[in-house]
């Protein structure tokens, strides 16, 4: 019961505070997924390609547009797996990740120069 009540309060707080904040700013997003065959990390570009480079992703600053782009990505079942929206920010060369998990996804593991480090995509 306590858990339900805490949940309720959390969402109530989130709703009342985020709602007004959201109207002003939406954390920009990129659409990312994994390639169906290789499993490699990929990003949806503004011109509807899947790029292996984060900086080529479309930086989406509008929530409704983000949802549309995500739906568009998810419809490409034969190419990709597990599309989602990841937080990002604008950088000098294009969108940059804001969270360390997404930063690791742009590179590959830290113990070997494998993944994108190997293919020269970083």
């Amino acid at each position: 019961m306590a858990e339900i009540w805490e949940n309720f309060l959390y969402w109530k707080r989130k709703f009342t505070t985020d709602e007004s904040a959201m109207a002003r700013s939406y954390t920009p997003k990129v659409v990312t997924a994994n390639a169906l065959v290789e499993g490699d990390v990929i990003y949806l570009t503004a011109d509807d390609r899947w790029s292996r480079r984060h900086e080529e992703a479309e930086l989406i600053e509008d929530e409704a547009h983000a949802q549309l782009r995500l739906l568009h990505a998810q419809s490409q079942k034969g190419l990709i797996v597990g599309a989602y929206l990841a937080d990002a920010k604008a950088g000098p060369d294009g969108p940059e990740p804001t969270h360390f998990r997404e930063a690791f996804r742009t590179r590959g593991p830290s113990n070997y120069a494998h993944g994108k480090q190997e293919t020269g995509n970083v």
Binding site: N34, E38, G39, D40, V41, V81, G82, R101, F104, R105, G108, P109, H114, G115, K116
Partner: peptide
């Protein structure tokens, strides 16, 4: 695929 031990991880299967 999971029944056959195949996961999709961060960078690859």
């Amino acid at each position: 695929r999971l029944m056959n031990g195949l996961y999709l991880q961060l960078h690859a299967y």
